[in-house]
């Protein structure tokens, strides 16, 4: 599914003392099979934006096109849209409610009105995609660790077979191990299923390792929308809006300012290492 937003505006609490423009003129193209990072600090509008993409919030003005069809048109099937654009909320483990893992994952496909075999097939597939085998199926979600619970919740969305998977800070509150496991699994999933993944985060370091495109949000607007190395070139501007480039960017930038002949477009440790070694051997 291809998503496109056109002049999207969202004002909440219109007409009250709390009126606030949460989104300002958002124009984005979300193609198929792309790994995208959305970055912004709390209140930048990133969470509001993703809730628009699957129709949970209706824009004040502007349009969203899903495969060319305006989702705000009368008669547009929002339910299908929600299954095609899977949204994993922050701390998704808080939405688990069934007595066992397997039934919880079945909830989504069941709501799509599929037959029992299909539902169970999808649940099994989704659980294996997040790395949970059948020994977990009949466990209560509350017996699991924080990272495992979160993977169950993500499986609950995957079982709906979304074309676009949006994850709102999927690593919040997890320790480094849980974080790496989840991000690795998402990356694998993206590559294997060739779906589009939008990863919302406030950690540049996390995102830079995985995504091919970064959308930086600030005060409800899109500040940058480019490949990571190009976005991090603006590391000084990023700081002024309360964000920061990965530490390695600062290392190469500092070295350059000290007169080194070095490539500063690095975004990962590996790239930084190569750049520094190359510069040292000059």
């Amino acid at each position: 599914m291809v998503l496109k937003t056109e002049h999207l505006n969202y004002i909440y609490g219109a007409g009250t003392a709390f009126e606030k423009q949460a989104l300002k003129d958002i124009n984005l193209d979300i193609p198929e099979n792309q790994f995208i990072g959305i970055i912004g600090h709390t209140g930048s509008g990133k969470s509001t934006l993703i809730q628009h993409l699957n129709g949970l919030i209706r824009a004040t003005s502007g349009a969203i096109y899903a495969d060319g069809k305006n989702i705000y048109e009368d008669g547009y099937d929002k339910k299908t849209l929600r299954s095609k654009v899977g949204l994993v909320f922050q701390y998704p483990e808080h939405q688990l409610f069934e007595t066992d893992v397997f039934s919880d994952v079945c909830f989504g496909p069941k709501n799509l009105g599929l037959c029992t075999e299909e539902i169970e097939e999808r649940a099994r597939e989704a659980l294996s995609q997040v790395g949970l085998d059948h020994s977990y199926y009949r466990k209560s979600p509350f017996e699991l660790s924080g990272g495992q619970k979160r993977r169950v919740a993500i499986a609950g969305i995957l079982a709906m077979h979304p074309d676009v998977l949006i994850l709102d800070e999927p690593t919040a509150g997890l320790d480094p191990r849980g974080r790496d496991e989840i991000l690795d699994q998402i990356e694998k999933l993206q590559k294997e299923q060739k779906i589009t993944v939008l990863l919302v985060s406030h950690s540049m370091e996390d995102v830079a390792n995985y995504v091919k495109r970064i959308i930086v949000m600030n005060k409800g607007q899109v500040l940058y929308d480019d490949v990571p190395s190009r976005v991090f070139e603006h590391y000084q501007e990023l700081e002024t809006v309360g964000l920061a480039a990965p530490q390695v960017t600062y290392v190469t930038q500092t070295l350059k300012s000290q007169g080194w002949d070095i490539d500063t477009s690095v975004t990962t440790i590996e790239e930084a290492k190569q750049a520094i070694l190359k510069a040292l051997n000059k």
């Binding site: 320790d175 480094p176 191990r177 370091e205 530490q247 290392v251 440790i269 290492k273 070694l277």
Partner: peptide, 18 residues
Amino acid sequence: YRLDVPQVTLLAHELKQS
């Protein structure tokens, strides 16, 4: 111990290894 090492420290470590 699966702990996160700051990127600079990791980078320094990698460079040292090289």
